[in-house]
């Protein structure tokens, strides 16, 4: 009896692990770090997590996880509610559509895929907000944020791979650099 409860709990935790890990990473980005430009140049960890998990473990990272991540982002930031949900959902749908072309290829290809998808996401986010505020947001800041996100992708992906291979490896193992 106890074993079965333990197994159910373990199964539930494993199912929730990508979401919980992503929430933790997202919350860490809001910690004040008092470094130059930290207030103005922030990578979008949620984008990385949604892309990564949608690419490799869609079975553990569904629409609910995407909505929750977006909702947390919306609540903590001063952007209009719903914007982050919309953008993350867009990434999720795009990744699900084209993910099968990328997920078996070397890491550099998935990184390139992320660079393309996140560029579109940033562009759409910029466009929506510009319409929302009826004025164009400075594009230089958007581009800097995009570059920071793309360059941080390998690190976050590596952490996600470690989580996957340590705790969720029973089902599937992700190999790095196309091993």
């Amino acid at each position: 009896m106890d074993d079965s409860i333990g197994e159910i709990l373990e199964y539930g935790l494993k199912k929730l692990l990508p979401l919980l890990w992503s929430v933790l990473l997202l919350l860490i980005t809001y910690i004040p770090i008092h470094l130059p430009l930290s207030q103005f140049l922030r990578p979008d960890i949620a984008m990385i997590c949604v892309y990564f998990w949608a690419l490799y473990r869609r079975d553990l990272f569904g629409i609910f996880s995407v909505v929750l991540l977006g909702f947390i982002g919306d609540s903590l930031s001063a952007v209009p509610a719903g914007l982050n949900i919309f953008i993350l959902m867009l990434i999720y749908v795009q990744t699900c559509s084209f993910g099968s072309l990328v997920n078996t290829k070397p890491f550099a290809v998935s990184w390139g895929g992320f660079a393309v998808i996140s560029f579109l996401a940033y562009l759409i986010k910029w466009l929506i907000l510009s319409i929302f505020y009826s004025r164009f947001l400075p594009f230089s800041g958007v581009f800097a944020g995009y570059l920071a996100t793309v360059f941080l992708y390998p690190l976050i992906a590596r952490l996600n791979i470690a989580i996957q291979n340590t705790f969720l490896a029973g089902e599937e193992v992700i190999y790095e650099q196309g091993q």
Binding site: Y30, R42, G141
Partner: peptide
């Protein structure tokens, strides 16, 4: 006390 900061090209706020 500042407990959270958020700043990128899309919004600048603190909690």
């Amino acid at each position: 006390k500042i407990v959270a900061e958020e700043g990128d090209a899309f919004s600048h706020s603190m909690i």
